[in-house]
């Protein structure tokens, strides 16, 4: 065999079949089959992420730097003009990506930490805990969440930590429902029973037996909830009750520049200024929705060819 490397070797061929594809290979194969809408979503999201991470280097000016002319029109220094007190709109758009997405991400993570862990706990302990949690979630969900968060913000005042906690708690009710529903199907499995008999603790069972088996629906839900939280925060900021100035944020930017829209007849660019942050919000939600759609399709085992 050494003197003739061209010789056919059955073992070599059989052995090569047993070589497993690495994670990287598998990811590449799946990505190669992704539809165009998913690619569009991923590219848009990557651009947003890049802008959010490198905001201080990308933005021409600081988010709070004030220039002489308020409502300046679009020109070479201020690509998208300046806002009502003379801050550069482009810089605020770039910093807004960081602030708005960061706060929405923190809120969604917190909401999943609360809703997810309580949901799994309720699925394991089906007696008193489940009853109490499920009934209170029913009641909390009976109030529209925008109205509820408006009420809570009027009591606790609107600061960024309050905003994150209030929306996360209200949103965790939805996460709780989903997690509980999927986890209940896993809890009855034999291996969970075995883990219990082995004497594993509640946290271990949650983390190592149940969580890995309910991850795909939770990830998809994470995308959807991120969109929802993002839109809620944008709506609250637009109403003037979310992220407070001078922090740059897309929702409040729409509100601050809304007056410009009536001059659209004379200068179409001025009329477009308030639509830029609103469009940025819309584009991100559409992109995330595309990714989630494709991900759900992948993990649900549905195939196009049937």
């Amino acid at each position: 065999m050494n003197n003739n490397s061209q010789a056919y070797s059955a073992t070599a061929e059989v052995a090569s079949v047993r070589l497993r594809r690495s994670r990287w290979d598998r990811a590449r194969v799946t990505l190669g089959k992704a539809p165009r809408s998913a690619w569009f979503g991923m590219i848009v999201f990557a651009i947003y992420l890049f802008i959010a991470l490198f905001a201080p280097w990308l933005a021409p000016f600081d988010e709070t730097q004030v220039f002489v002319t308020p409502f300046a029109s679009w020109d070479a220094t201020h690509w998208f003009g300046t806002d009502q007190i003379g801050r550069d709109v482009l810089s605020r758009l770039i910093y807004g990506a960081r602030n708005t997405m960061g706060i929405a991400l923190a809120t969604t993570l917190l909401s999943f930490a609360i809703g997810g862990s309580l949901g799994i706990m309720a699925a394991i302990n089906r007696r008193l805990l489940d009853q109490i949690l499920s009934r209170s979630v029913d009641v909390l969900m009976a109030i529209p969440s925008l109205i509820f968060s408006l009420m809570l913000l009027s009591i606790f005042g609107s600061s960024i930590p309050n905003l994150i906690i209030i929306i996360a708690v209200l949103d965790s009710t939805r996460v709780f429902r989903l997690t509980r529903a999927v986890a209940i199907n896993v809890v009855v499995m034999d291996y969970v029973e075995a883990a219990r008999l082995r004497g594993d603790g509640l946290w271990w069972i949650m983390r190592h037996e149940i969580l890995p088996n309910i991850t795909p629906p939770l990830i998809a839900e994470f995308g959807l909830r991120f969109c929802f939280v993002f839109l809620t925060i944008a709506a609250l900021s637009f109403l003037g009750l979310g992220i407070q100035p001078p922090t740059a944020d897309w929702g409040s930017m729409v509100r601050e520049n809304a007056n410009l829209i009536q001059f659209a007849q004379f200068d179409i660019k001025a009329g477009l200024t308030p639509l830029l942050p609103a469009g940025a919000i819309a584009l991100l939600t559409i992109a995330v929705n595309f990714i989630v759609d494709w991900f759900l399709h992948q993990t649900s085992g549905l195939r196009d060819d049937h």
């Binding site: 637009f238 729409v254 009536q262 659209a264 179409i268 009329g271 639509l275 919000i281 819309a282 559409i286």
Partner: peptide
Amino acid sequence: ALTTISMPEFFLAYILILLLASLWPILPS
């Protein structure tokens, strides 16, 4: 329909204002 679902309400509202109240002023904003 899919596009309008994923847009914030105020975006839709301002697009309508821009088109129907500002550029072609047929309705009051």
